[in-house]
Design a protein around this nucleic acid. Sequence first.
DNA 1: ATTCGTTATATATAATCTTATATAACGATC
DNA 2: GATCGTTATATAAGATTATATATAACGAAT
Lengths: 113, 113
Amino acid sequence: MKRKEIRFRCWVDVDGERFFGPGPAQLLRLIEETGSISRAAQAMGMSYRKAWDIVDNVNTRGSKPFVIAQKGGQRGGGAQLTETGKKALVAYEKLAGKIEKIVRVEKALLKLI
Amino acid sequence: MKRKEIRFRCWVDVDGERFFGPGPAQLLRLIEETGSISRAAQAMGMSYRKAWDIVDNVNTRGSKPFVIAQKGGQRGGGAQLTETGKKALVAYEKLAGKIEKIVRVEKALLKLI
DNA sequence: ATTCGTTATATATAATCTTATATAACGATC
DNA sequence: GATCGTTATATAAGATTATATATAACGAAT
């Protein structure tokens, strides 16, 4: 028997270009947990370069930054979420949860496959 | 003022790999309208190769084919949807419509961006 | 048998995205 | 001022995905 599964993804476009989605959400969650962009990137198997790009994106293309990063200091620096970043993360996860509920109960489509 | 928009995508995985999503759905819709894979591909600016791959996928990896294609004949051949294909297309569009409703009323996330 | 437009298939090229690698800047602590 | 680990940035390499191109097979109609 084949394993059939409905999946979804939701994200926010700003001026027609990707701004925030599942990748950035997971990254932000890990930044909150680890206190650093590089550790967050490592934790999700993502290159630091890409992680930094994501952070730069959410910091510069929205109305308020989502992450504040410090460089230097004994421990090299670190990063944490702003209040806006925390709220956006929660709002995103809430929306994804709502869609998840819809998808879970869908049976008609899977029956045909 | 920046244009902010929530977007989404839903699809079906079979054995962990993409089986049916928005691309195949649009292609099937156009095959139904045009009666041909190549015309459908052209109509959505997709290469015939990719379109054929999609058709081959939904025909071989599900339990029943979605498209029947004929080659040869005076008009070269053509393609049309099977009953299963038609039903799957409708079911997919219905699901997408439900998610669309959820996304439309979401305001909390956009306010933060 | 010739013509026709499509399906079916293989190969090569182009474009895009991701990681890999390297290096400079930073600033608190010692 | 030397050390430390991180941020910040540029460039190269690799992987992935798409299109482009070409060609054979097909079968009804003439």
